[in-house]
Design a protein around this nucleic acid. Structure first.
Length: 521
RNA sequence: GGCGGCGUGGCCAAGCGGUCUAAGGCGAAGGUCUGCAAAACCUUUAUUCAUCGGUUCGAAUCCGAUCGCCGCCUCCA
């Protein structure tokens, strides 16, 4: 297996320190808001990588931190006039909820530690750094002395002299060197604080990752990942801290994920192109989002747009259509050897997680066996082998498919949708196309797509339909049609509607102010 | 100024020295089906890889130049 290592800027053979066990750490969110679709990309990539390792039979210890004390959280708490702890709690909870919505399925070896629950580890680590002469304390602020650490810049490919000459003017004059960064920040009035040997304060941003990584995975780990904006300074600083404290190589493989832009622009609230994951997932299933993300290499940039998520969604639907056909096959016979496809998938993923190529293998299976499924040249055994492949690969690793989803949705008004569809089909048989088309258009507006065949019509309810398909709306269509028929003195049609509804347990009651209905049990 | 990345069909995207007249997805076109549609299915859809040079028996793939785009160097996944 090859992984691109930012440290050496090339793909390297992946050899975990303990055979068949992967220790990986991914920089998680600062919980001051709902996470956005750019954050979601990182979480999805990290999830897929860990799932792939597990699918290949490796044990994965996965850690993603939650930064729950930070300037941004404090700022938000001040704005809302609440404790920063409350802000952190609200958005931590939301984080876990949204993670599930992204199709991230945590295993028992996934840990999501919080910074505030690791204060003693953080403080111990700072002490260690201080003892080894890499930190200094100025009035309760503790800084890392960048010049004292020889390897500083090895990850980002920067050297200290260049950095210093390009450094922006620092307001903080306490630092010996403008590039020195805070390990411990002295508490200002009204800020949350913890007691420490340097006085009351809170940890700097970088130290928490070093401390939690060490606590949960050990002093030396296999993979550390995050967005590529974290390379400098965050990850560079983590290396400095951890290696200064532990005198050991901190991370063997550094992985960095490409950034997500929207219509070629950085996502920002002021530009109005800011989407939270939970917002987007109301419109599209997570499979579509993951399809979009997985069709691009994880290191590359991704330009998000409405058009692209819709294209990805169409791709997901294609797999579901195929799956539904497989489910209906009942002819027994020979199974299919899926081994070559597994191998193809594996070799794509083994090459630095080339998920785009891996997905091509899935569509190759879809295209190849779709033909056989259509001509009934596929056996039940064969179909099952393919379904298992889809479940293991498309669902279990990539998350672009879920056997639980993609089935016809159960919604409240479904029963009445069926009535409309059946009524329409009967009228269509009578060549009463005017009303047939009217029903079709009516349902289309509600997000219901009709699928006609000679034997009858079935229908699909789209995600847009939620909340629209109420019993009232649907029955009222009949009532309105009947009223119109009556007005046109077409009593044949009016009675037909009344009788049809009665047959299906809907009793109409004509009154002075119009028609109402009651339901029979 | 320093560091790094990218430019492949209408859109997205894989490929990173020969198997490339370039995978896959979306879209589009034609067809089958249909009362008409929709959905589904079938077929078609890049002799070409920003431009110009070079290396090589051979380049989308390596080197150089040019043009264009982007990220990091300050909080950010």
């Amino acid at each position: 297996m090859q992984i691109y290592n930012t440290l050496n800027r090339k793909k390297e053979e992946f050899i975990p320190s303990t055979p068949n066990e992967v220790k990986m750490y991914v920089c998680g969110p600062t919980v001051y808001d709902y996470f956005h679709i750019g954050n979601a990309r990182s979480f999805i990539i990290a999830d897929t990588i860990s799932k792939y390792f597990r699918y290949r039979g490796m044990k994965v210890k996965f850690v993603m931190n939650l930064t729950d004390v930070d300037d941004k959280i404090i700022k938000k708490a001040n704005e809302q006039n609440v404790e920063s702890k409350e802000v952190a709690e609200v958005y931590s909870t939301a984080f876990f909820e949204d993670l599930v919505k992204l199709g991230v399925t945590p295993s028992e070896d996934n840990f999501y530690p919080k910074a505030t629950e690791h204060m003693s580890e953080i403080i111990d680590m700072i002490k260690k750094i201080e003892e080894k002469g890499h930190a200094y304390n100025v009035n309760g602020n503790v800084f890392f002395d960048v010049r004292s650490f020889k390897g500083y810049g090895k990850l980002s490919g920067k050297n200290l002299d260049d950095l210093e000459s390009g450094a922006r003017v620092e307001i903080n004059t306490e630092k010996k060197n403008p590039l020195d960064f805070a390990l411990w920040k002295k508490a200002k009035d009204g800020e949350p604080y913890w007691e420490s040997p340097w006085g009351n304060g809170r940890p700097g941003w970088h130290i928490e990752c070093s401390a939690m990584s060490t606590k949960h995975l050990g002093e030396s780990i296999d993979i550390h990942a995050g967005g590529n904006d974290l390379i400098f300074p965050h990850h560079e600083n983590e290396i400095a801290q951890s290696e200064a404290a532990n005198s050991k190589e901190f991370v063997k493989y550094w992985m960095h994920f490409g950034f997500l832009n929207i219509d070629n622009q950085k996502m920002s609230k002021s530009l109005g192109n800011f989407f939270t994951a939970r917002e987007l997932l109301k419109k599209y299933p997570y499979e579509a989002l993951r399809m979009l993300y997985m069709q691009t290499h994880y290191r590359g940039p991704l330009n998000f747009s409405q058009e692209l998520i819709e294209a990805a969604h169409s791709g997901v639907k294609k797999i579901y259509v195929f799956r539904n056909k497989l489910l209906n096959i009942d002819k027994s016979g020979e199974s299919i050897d899926m081994a070559p496809y597994y191998e193809k998938f594996n070799s794509a993923m083994d090459d630095d997680f080339n998920s785009a190529k891996a997905i091509a293998t899935i569509f190759e299976v879809v295209n190849t066996y779709d033909k056989l499924a259509n001509t009934a040249n596929l056996s039940k055994e064969g179909a099952e082998a393919i379904l298992e492949f889809l479940d293991k690969i498309a669902n279990g690793v990539l998350g672009i498919y879920n056997p639980e989803n993609g089935l016809p949705k159960k919604v409240s008004g479904e029963k009445f949708v069926k009535l409309l569809v059946d009524f329409r089909f009967a009228e269509k048989q009578n060549k009463n196309f005017a009303i047939a088309d009217k029903i079709r258009d009516f349902l289309a507006d509600l997000g219901v797509t009709l699928l006609d065949s000679k034997e009858g019509s079935t229908f699909e309810i789209s995600d847009d339909s939620f909340g629209k398909l109420t019993d009232e709306t649907l029955v009222n269509f009949f009532i309105d049609e009947r009223a119109e028929a009556k007005a046109n003195k077409d009593f044949g049609m009016a009675d037909k509607i009344r009788d049809f509804l009665k047959e299906h347990g809907v009793i109409l009651q004509d009154g002075k102010d119009g028609t109402t209905f009651t339901l029979e049990n």
